[in-house]
Design a protein around this nucleic acid. Sequence first.
DNA 1: TATGAATGAGTCTTCATTCAT
DNA 2: AATGAATGAAGACTCATTCAT
Lengths: 195, 195, 195, 195
Amino acid sequence: MGEKSAHKKQFIVETARQVFVEKGYKDVTMKDIVDACGISRGGLYLYFESTAELFREVLEAEQKEKDDIFSGEIPEDATATDILLVFLKEQKKEILLKKNSITVAAYEYFFANKPAKKDNLLRRKFLESVDILKGLIEAGVENGEFVCEDPESTAQDIMFVLEGLRVCSQTMGLSESRVDRELLYIMEGLVYEDL
Amino acid sequence: MGEKSAHKKQFIVETARQVFVEKGYKDVTMKDIVDACGISRGGLYLYFESTAELFREVLEAEQKEKDDIFSGEIPEDATATDILLVFLKEQKKEILLKKNSITVAAYEYFFANKPAKKDNLLRRKFLESVDILKGLIEAGVENGEFVCEDPESTAQDIMFVLEGLRVCSQTMGLSESRVDRELLYIMEGLVYEDL
Amino acid sequence: MGEKSAHKKQFIVETARQVFVEKGYKDVTMKDIVDACGISRGGLYLYFESTAELFREVLEAEQKEKDDIFSGEIPEDATATDILLVFLKEQKKEILLKKNSITVAAYEYFFANKPAKKDNLLRRKFLESVDILKGLIEAGVENGEFVCEDPESTAQDIMFVLEGLRVCSQTMGLSESRVDRELLYIMEGLVYEDL
Amino acid sequence: MGEKSAHKKQFIVETARQVFVEKGYKDVTMKDIVDACGISRGGLYLYFESTAELFREVLEAEQKEKDDIFSGEIPEDATATDILLVFLKEQKKEILLKKNSITVAAYEYFFANKPAKKDNLLRRKFLESVDILKGLIEAGVENGEFVCEDPESTAQDIMFVLEGLRVCSQTMGLSESRVDRELLYIMEGLVYEDL
DNA sequence: TATGAATGAGTCTTCATTCAT
DNA sequence: AATGAATGAAGACTCATTCAT
């Protein structure tokens, strides 16, 4: 595949992402992609043989873009609390977003397709996030910001809560205040002053 | 609709439930139902005009069966801790179940269909559960079993965690030990001895 | 068939008439009739084996009701001109009616079903009307009201014009003024004073 | 759509025309068209999304072919009488045709679909014909061939008669002699010598 | 590489008709 | 006579996929 083709492939992936964001995973047809991209049916098949393959590439591209769970800017002298707050704020934003998130499509995809554990992007991302959070909590404990006996479990707990918020937001709707309350609850479980 | 028809309708709902359990929501066609039930195409339409309507009835039937989140047996002299443990154990069982659960289908349905808040079964069930948990925690605090400053937030937190476990289990797979660890984490946050 | 059955049959025919008036002939299903009559599917088949048979009975009932083309009241001392005007006025009313007329359904039926000439109700009615008109014109000529060299051809011409107005009204829409103009044209061709 | 596709589209329209001629409008299914054309179901939908759309194109193609009501040959030195005779002869031919005419299908279509007046092809064609006839009659009056006080009303009258003949022919059947008699009646109402 | 016409399998939905009660 | 549940054939429509150009 030449350079030009690579560009086209990337273009398709980016365009397809929007389609998946808007329609989820299962409802997207090859025609939807073709129409959105303005290319021919045959043309699409030169690059992707199914929506499943295309979706996997969308997810991978997604990963490359934010290889860090902190897409926000973090100042040099930020405390652990600062960083955690930034992280939770970003998660909150994404959780409350009705559209423009690939979340629902990803759930739909992984409900139907169970890749081997090591190939499961959602799982990798989850574990990665747990790890980073764990490090952050340990740092906070170290410098006296946080109180936490089991940083790993706490990190995992936070991730499960976030996943719960995410899915609840998409299935039953969540008000901002309800999300705030939950995130506050998480923070209060960690910071020293509250005790 | 006579008595006989009512039976048939119930039979269809029960049979359809299995189909939804096996295939999720979106992949299920009227033909799948027809085949599973061994009835004619036209016959099914006498009772349900779409898979959506049928699925709603499946969910409602589901609700009627367990109108209480504690389907397990609870002894008269059970402590709050006992009851909470029973509840979490049942949740764990359901979370780890690969199949035989309508969970995935329900998620798929509610991703695609957003009923008004008061009609949203998932939401109703969630809030109901929060309420019951809250009562349980308050009772535990009362008699000195639990330590909890904000029972409602804690109850809600537990429910979000469970929802997170549920969706993670279905999308990335969860080992029993990981679930156990998380549930233990929840319990430890509540019981007195841990402090 | 007992007396009671005859009543029910008549009830079905009358109810079905309304359905045909509203939906034309081809779009009417047995279910439409069943619903309109509030009877059972099987029940309808006891009396009529198809919409075609039912429609024929509707037409026949129609005929019995107005066995005369002059459904309006005609005073004893009416002149030929008076009678002709009454007739044309009634025709005009029917022609301009958007609904409540069986016309379209009848056209649809006879487009698809060509009964033998003697069984063709539309034809019988047409010829009958020509005959009556012819007699009327002859009477008018007799007493000097009309000028007409060939009453039969004139009668037939009038009927063709009315049929043309009818079908044009239903396919392309006709304004009242256009109908008036045409009917006036017909009258002027007959009455003496105009020459 | 490329040149080739345009040909195929035209082929479908022409083939469909025959189907509509044979079965009328309402009884024609997409399958009928597909079978007649020897193409696939999906293929047809590439060009037309319904029988209604297809039928409209058939009508439009019909119009393009004979954009003049005089499809017959008219010699240079023809009199108004000649031309009118040619016109009526063609009309007669079409009226008496049992098949090969799109008439019935058009009636069925316009019974069920009432386009805005300016979009109603039947109406446009009717008014156009009235206009041409009016011009012809005026020319005939000018040179002494015809006697007519109101050429427009007369033209309209002729068109209503023709429409009446057309619909009667298709619903009750008309003998050639009956049509001849009516057309003769029309001519006699115009030409000078008869008075 | 790229196109887009073409295919045909699959699903949805409606309807006339039957038949056990 | 009357009911209405049940059937299955038939038509509408969509979609993944192929293939000649």
